[in-house]
Structures are given as structure tokens and as C-alpha cells.
């Protein structure tokens, strides 16, 4: 069974009119994955592999728990670990790391809150 890594109670204080950009940065070699950010409304912002996506303004995400799901995998034989950084507006929120001997296809879930500063 796949292992799921949950990072709860992540808080990023933000002003109402501030744009929020969510970044997935692959650190280990050979990672592949899809990250979906469950903001209110559709379509849900998505990042294929690594990159940055606009997820809304502070006021739009206020009061909600925003769930961000990454379905990752690392099929290359030379790499022993999966290491991924999650950032909001270039601020590191979580650096996920797991050895591939533990899980080669982790599901990483972030629970984010955006209160006022």
C-alpha cells in the first residue's frame, strides 16, 4: 500500500490583496508528479512535475483549509530518495523527504491556512 505523508497546520499569513504563488521544486533527481491545489472554485491549479502556479489572492483563501496534493514517483535507479520543496511566494513551507526504500510513489498532502498577518 502506498504511503501518504500529511503535513497539517501549515500557516502562511497573508494580506487580502497579496497574490499567492505556489511552487513545487524537485531537489532529488528523476522525480515526476502532479500537484493539485484545491482552492475554492474551478479549475484547480495544477503543477506538472516542478514549477509555479498562481493560486489566488489572500482574501480568496481566507478562512479555508486549502489542501494541496502531490502524487509523486521516482523511477530512476540511481536515486535513493525523494526530496521536494514546497514554497509559497518563495518562502519554504515544507521540505518533504523520504527514502525510496520506504516509498517510491508517495502521496504528499499539505493542509494550508492563510490568516491575516
Amino acid at each position: 500500500m502506498r504511503k501518504t505523508y500529511r503535513y497539517r497546520d501549515l500557516v502562511y499569513p497573508v494580506a487580502d490583496d497579496t497574490d499567492l504563488n505556489f511552487t513545487v521544486e524537485f531537489i532529488s533527481d528523476g522525480n515526476s508528479g502532479i500537484t493539485t491545489i484545491f482552492v475554492p472554485g474551478n479549475p484547480k491549479p495544477e503543477i506538472e512535475d516542478a514549477g509555479t502556479v498562481f493560486i489566488g489572492k489572500g482574501s480568496q483563501l481566507r478562512g479555508e483549509i486549502i489542501v494541496c496534493v502531490s502524487d509523486l514517483e521516482n523511477p530512476i535507479p540511481e536515486e535513493d530518495e525523494i526530496r521536494v520543496k514546497y514554497k509559497i511566494n518563495d518562502t519554504l513551507i515544507v521540505e518533504h523527504h523520504n527514502p525510496k526504500s520506504e516509498e517510491e510513489r508517495p502521496i504528499v498532502i499539505l493542509f494550508l491556512k492563510f490568516p491575516k498577518p
Binding site: 493539485t36 483549509i65 496534493v69 502524487d71
Partner: peptide, 18 residues
């Protein structure tokens, strides 16, 4: 095919957690 499976998984996992 792998990306398709990952997208399907994400669309189920996010709402399931909430």
C-alpha cells in the same frame, strides 16, 4: 498513462481528506 493516474488520484485524494 502514469500522469493520467496521478491526476485521477489527486482529484480523489483532495476531496477525500476534507
Amino acid at each position: 498513462e502514469l500522469k493520467t493516474n496521478q491526476r485521477i488520484s489527486n482529484l480523489i485524494v483532495g476531496p477525500s481528506e476534507l
